[in-house]
């Protein structure tokens, strides 16, 4: 596979889950017009970084395509854990008790 992207729609918006601009636009056009909806349909933002890099980009694409307010789109509840946690950390906490 060559690194060069031929069609701009093939550009990866979510690198962790390898979701392209085309897939995201398709979901928006079907009426999934919030960051959370897009995530559920395409898996964008469900990977290792949990949307820390792509959420804003997705919000911007939705705003451009639907005319929605970007600030509203970004009021997106972050879920626990905020960063990936090692299992071991929990175990060690316990053994100190």
């Amino acid at each position: 596979m060559s690194d060069e992207v031929k069609d701009p729609k093939d550009v990866l918006i979510c690198r962790c889950e390898e979701v392209t601009l085309r897939e995201i636009e398709q979901a928006i056009d079907e009426g999934f017009d919030t960051v959370n909806d897009v995530k559920r349909i395409t898996r964008a933002g469900m990977g290792l970084c949990q949307g820390r890099s792509c959420s804003k980009v997705i919000a911007r694409i939705i705003a451009q395509r639907t005319g929605k307010n970007i600030e509203e789109l970004l009021q997106n509840s972050y879920r626990y854990p905020v960063r990936p946690e090692k299992f071991k950390i929990f175990d060690e906490e316990e053994s100190h008790e």
Binding site: P81, K86, F87, K88, D91
Partner: peptide, 10 residues
Amino acid sequence: LKDIHFIRAI
């Protein structure tokens, strides 16, 4: 599993 990460709880 002790050395891997979990990325989310639901």
